[in-house]
């Protein structure tokens, strides 16, 4: 089991959160409460960089959807960057690849 770490980098287009470790039932609330503290302005884009993500279950996916909701409420966009293959497979299976904006890496945000 890996702990979950969330590191924030503010860029010209909006905040980038580097989410690393396990995003599961026990740790998803960490990301969700962290997201609540990320200020977003209309027109910005919130990017979650998942290159360091080791594991993600349905609670993790719920947290990603909550991040998207958080951005939409603020009038901002939201994108997932560097989605690991396993998670991409699950997202595709449930159709969420149509819902999330997917980017190969977070540097594309700047």
């Amino acid at each position: 089991m890996n702990p979950l770490t969330v590191r924030q980098l503010d860029t010209a287009t909006g905040p980038v959160l580097y989410v690393a470790g396990d995003l599961d039932f026990d740790r998803a609330p960490v990301l969700r409460s962290r997201l609540d503290q990320v200020p977003l302005s209309p027109g910005q884009c919130l990017v979650l960089d998942l290159s360091g993500l080791a594991f993600c279950d349905s609670s993790g996916i719920t947290a990603l959807l909550a991040a998207r909701q958080h951005a939409l409420v603020a009038g901002a966009d939201m994108a997932l960057a560097a989605v690991p293959a396993n998670l991409l497979r699950v997202l595709t299976l449930v159709g969420l690849d149509q819902v999330f904006t997917l980017r190969p890496d977070s540097s594309a945000a700047s």
């Binding site: 959807l65 449930v94 159709g95 969420l96 149509q98 819902v99």
Partner: peptide, 15 residues
Amino acid sequence: PGGLLIGVVPGAPIG
């Protein structure tokens, strides 16, 4: 194909 998780977005496509 094309069906989306139920409850996420309004008017979600159904396969």
